[in-house]
Design a protein around this nucleic acid. Sequence first.
DNA 1: TCTTTTTATGAAATCGATTACATTTTATGT
DNA 2: ACATAAAATGTAATCGATTTCATAAAAAGA
Lengths: 327, 327
Amino acid sequence: MATIQEVAKKAGVSAATVSRVLNNRNSVKEKTRMRVDQAIRELNYEPSVLGRNLRNSESRLLLVLIPSISNPFYTEIINGIEDTAIGKGYNILLCETDSNPKREAIYFNMVRNRLADGIILMDPTVNRKNLHDLACKHPIIQCSEFDENGTISYVTIDNELAAYQAVKHLIKIGKKKVALINSDEKFLYARERRSGYEKAMKEFGLPIESKWIRSVEQLGFESGQQAMRSLLNEADMPNAVFAVSDVLAIGALKEINSIGLKVPEDIAIIGFDKISFSNMTHPTLTTIAQPMYKMGCISATMIIDKIRGNDVESLILDHELIIREST
Amino acid sequence: MATIQEVAKKAGVSAATVSRVLNNRNSVKEKTRMRVDQAIRELNYEPSVLGRNLRNSESRLLLVLIPSISNPFYTEIINGIEDTAIGKGYNILLCETDSNPKREAIYFNMVRNRLADGIILMDPTVNRKNLHDLACKHPIIQCSEFDENGTISYVTIDNELAAYQAVKHLIKIGKKKVALINSDEKFLYARERRSGYEKAMKEFGLPIESKWIRSVEQLGFESGQQAMRSLLNEADMPNAVFAVSDVLAIGALKEINSIGLKVPEDIAIIGFDKISFSNMTHPTLTTIAQPMYKMGCISATMIIDKIRGNDVESLILDHELIIREST
DNA sequence: TCTTTTTATGAAATCGATTACATTTTATGT
DNA sequence: ACATAAAATGTAATCGATTTCATAAAAAGA
């Protein structure tokens, strides 16, 4: 790998001039620029991000922190982030934190060390103090999850309202015994969706029974299956299920199918996220669509704005109830 | 973020001494080391990877290049990579290339620039010359896909044999009209699996009919659905399908179900990869299991070995036919 | 106590780029 | 043609760490 010095020598100019050519600076004579460009091409030169960053504190790299890449919910968001970021000259690096604070710390330090310019955080399990310390000095925004009392800008949807509407829909089609399969309440969305569930139940004068509420730790199909199995074992079985993620709903659906009950006649089911699988099940899954791609685009725009020193406002986007065969 | 200079000042020593403490160098007096450690703690100091790399050319970061994170096939591999890499003191950054040469070039340059120590490549669409140029000077290994005539070490499975066994299984259960839903033959695995399909058909004296072969560009469910729809429109309909990925198989399954045909009685179907969703379909999907987690672990071990300057051998791992309800 | 050897530390160069400032070259006006 | 303004380029400092080489301090030997 050639250095800027070698290019300078080959072009018969100083490193400073090469640098100016590289950065399209104002004052370089056309003739000189040509010579430098020529030398750059001949040596196949690429500026070292390392040297540049050390001086400039700019890497044009964004970190995207997600708890796990296995969750299809994140895929569309990431597509949105990438398309937008690349359009603005930034590249993104995906970091899987596994909700492990140590790994999170490593990625946070990449920003402190100027290896990356900013972070889009989708993981809720951060140590709040670390997060806040980082946010004071470095650009960071949150996507989907956010810190309720924090000062960090975010983009998300109204989870409580969405859950409320989902459950209301179940009640409207005549189901009064609505179960909830929730994920770990360390997630803000889980707490909000539970609250939406409760709001809808209360509004229609239905009891909130803890025997119809399950909380899972993992977000895999199996967790949905297990939760559903446990719900089906209740003497007083629910006749509808609101699962806070399509993955869980699909697991639940599988379990219901496998013991021979009909969906939606015996048990109706509604998921959340509108992942692509949710249209492949039998019956297809009613779900709440989040504008995931758009959330990604907005996240990217926000973080780049922040990197450029602008103030950015938090945003709450619209969701949509997608009614399909399972209700 | 404190610098090494500030630590040095606070501890009343030179930056050189602080550096020696940081790197556990031989000669630092116990008393001095204590003072430096103290200063480091008080200032909450973390050495800058930037400064260190510029001098040392080591970042302890690995790049993992995948065409798309939406494909669940990669998830387990990545888990294996991460667990292994982290165990050995390396962190990984996921890079989605979208099979876009420009984006690939950016990530390649991160290695040239010493922002990362090595690459695990899972994308086949690389410009061969660029790849080779990089491989000459920097550690790189390939996982799953590889360059047949290249010198780059890889870990993969015997795709031809696996496909051969899958198709043989279909024939053995009495299906003679076996269709193939393949992915783009730019992928080596696609070419190999097609060849395995043909081998099995020939072995049993069955014709290889182009009307029963489909090639898709995208690897989504919809592609599987479309391919199946087109196969079902043939006057002479197949009675079995080998899809080169579970995602495609699930799309095909959906299509078969939706026009009222029975699986496996009317049409048997077999997928590839054993993704977690393949056990959630109705009926559950027969598939070929790849040791994905293990592939990830081995990839990580190989690349780190290579970074350390050791020679590494390519590996071909075993696969397994998982017979479930769809055949 | 005075060398000599060993150990601990500091000063300064280095990595590859950028940029403020200095200097040279070119353009403009009279 | 000459003075002056403007444009182009070079010089050298800088970013934060590491490391070579030189030097100071401590230990060992006489």
